[in-house]
């Protein structure tokens, strides 16, 4: 069980509201299992030695995927009280931009390019919490595309069955904001795209929920390179 508190800062508020609006509807998500061992935390292990508390970052709990390839370590920052998730996998594309659901909490979290996610000040019921992950089914990388108003790009890292998927990009620069229209094509039969994530060269991440395989992104100024991740 998870209770989520609204963020105190103004910037985090829009993300918070957006995450509340979105419903976890990933088809290709999978559950992580709680690692049944005491948290690997020196104060617990060294309790008898009566040391002063020097540990700022302490492991709250850890979760592992069924095949053992994913490890999610929930670390508590004792100074701020924030919980951070550290998603680990041997392959970078597997922990970068991965959606995480803490069951019981409306909304979702997305890891950054290092596999980190900030859960904020949430209260985790360590005995009942469940975690789901959704990693991208295909990743499309691009460079300097905005010189052409319309272009097709093809996936570089693909899950099985998503090899034919293609993105039609249309760039609108007439409006005050730069807008990118993304049309997803050649999706395997019976499958649907739940999210499209744009990661720009400036490490900015934009999330879109496609409607009829179409979505629009308001591009940040100077964003030239990046990648699209699509999630089923």
């Amino acid at each position: 069980m998870v209770k989520r508190r609204p963020p105190a800062d103004k910037n985090g508020l829009s993300d918070f509201c957006g995450s509340l609006a979105r419903h976890w509807n990933f088809r290709s998500s999978f559950e992580l299992f709680r690692l049944n061992r005491p948290p690997a935390s020196p104060p617990q292990l060294l309790a008898l030695s009566a040391w002063p508390s020097f540990e700022i970052y302490a492991e709250k709990m850890s979760f592992i995927s069924g095949d053992g390839s994913y490890l999610l370590r929930v670390i508590e920052n004792k100074m701020s009280g924030n919980l951070e998730g550290h998603l680990i996998h041997s392959l970078p594309q597997k922990y970068q931009q991965v959606f995480i659901e803490l069951e019981g909490l409306t909304g979702e979290y997305l890891t950054d390019s290092h596999g980190l996610v900030n859960f904020g000040k949430i209260e985790l019921d360590t005995s009942r919490v469940r975690v789901n992950l959704c990693s991208p089914v295909a990743i499309f990388k691009f460079k300097h595309l905005w010189s052409c108003p319309a272009v097709k790009i093809y996936p570089e890292l693909i899950s099985t069955g998503w090899e034919q998927t293609v993105l039609d990009l249309e760039y609108f620069s007439a409006t005050p904001d730069q807008v990118l229209k993304v049309q997803i094509g050649n999706i395997p039969e019976g499958r649907e795209i739940a999210r499209v994530v744009l990661v720009t060269n400036q490490q900015e991440t934009l999330i879109a929920v496609p409607q009829k395989r179409l979505c629009l992104f308001e591009l940040p100024a100077g964003a030239r390179d990046g990648q699209f991740n699509i999630y089923e």
Partner: peptide, 22 residues
């Protein structure tokens, strides 16, 4: 090398280290 970079291996190694420290 793959085994060494496996998250589970890292977690075990880390916990062994903490146990040794204790």
């Amino acid at each position: 090398e793959q085994n060494n970079s496996s998250p589970l291996y890292l977690d075990n190694l880390f916990n062994q280290t903490l146990a040794s420290i204790s």
